[in-house]
């Protein structure tokens, strides 16, 4: 029953969505809309799971005085402190916004900006003219990079046009191929879940057990 009931719910929900989407009567009865409301409510409740889990793990760290427990304590103070501040102060609150703009925004941007450094080191390490294909990739990457920045234009006026051509045609063709394959793949995965063939999400190894 532990696995059958969730499977039954999955299958019924799948059929419900198809009926609500594809049939005019489903649209008239606003089935999808009512399901959306149910989902909104259950998602909001589920949000608590994350917070509770995080609290449970870090309270345990603090209680057992694990290495670095002070950071767990900091996490708990920040998480619950900011939650309380948000409830009291709201989006309009000066303190709430200050914490966001001065701390959260800066920390977020800092981690994202690592990308600039990592792109440089990854490109330096990985882009080698090992094969003809790799050389083609390298040349197109260089053209796009030069075409996307004014320095390319200053070197040669043709770079932006070439970069745009690469983006519009070879890039679009490859992206479409990957996307079509990915959509079909996801479609079949969903079908496998609906038919109950794939059940790893219910715990264990599902269909992918070691043979």
């Amino acid at each position: 029953m532990r696995k059958e009931l969730p499977l039954l719910v999955t299958i019924l929900t799948g059929l419900f969505v198809i009926f609500g989407h594809d049939f005019a009567i489903g649209e008239k009865w606003q089935l999808i809309n009512s399901m959306d409301k149910w989902q909104s409510i259950s998602q909001a409740v589920a949000l608590l799971i994350g917070a509770i889990n995080l609290t449970r793990i870090h309270v345990n760290h603090v209680r057992r005085r694990k290495a670095g427990y002070i950071f767990s304590l900091l996490l708990l103070v920040c998480m619950w402190g900011y939650t309380v501040l948000g409830v009291i102060d709201g989006y309009k609150g000066v303190t709430f916004r200050w914490v966001y703009n001065a701390l959260l925004a800066s920390l977020d941007s800092t981690i994202f900006s690592l990308l600039a450094f990592y792109i440089a080191s990854a490109a330096y390490r990985a882009f080698r003219v090992r094969t003809v294909e790799a050389s083609l990739l390298l040349v197109s990457a260089a053209i796009v990079m030069l075409g996307r920045a004014p320095i390319g234009e200053a070197i040669w006026k043709g770079f932006p046009d070439w970069a745009n051509w690469i983006m519009r045609f070879p890039n679009t063709a490859a992206m479409r191929a990957v996307l079509i394959g990915a959509y079909l793949g996801s479609f079949v995965t969903v079908l496998r879940i609906l038919l109950g063939i794939e059940r790893a999400h219910l715990g264990g190894v599902g269909g992918a057990g070691m043979k």
Binding site: I119, A123, M145, I151, G152
Partner: peptide, 11 residues
């Protein structure tokens, strides 16, 4: 511009 130029130079 300079960021892109540097990466190309490194490559």
């Amino acid at each position: 511009s300079l960021g892109h130029a540097l990466i190309i130079l490194l490559i």
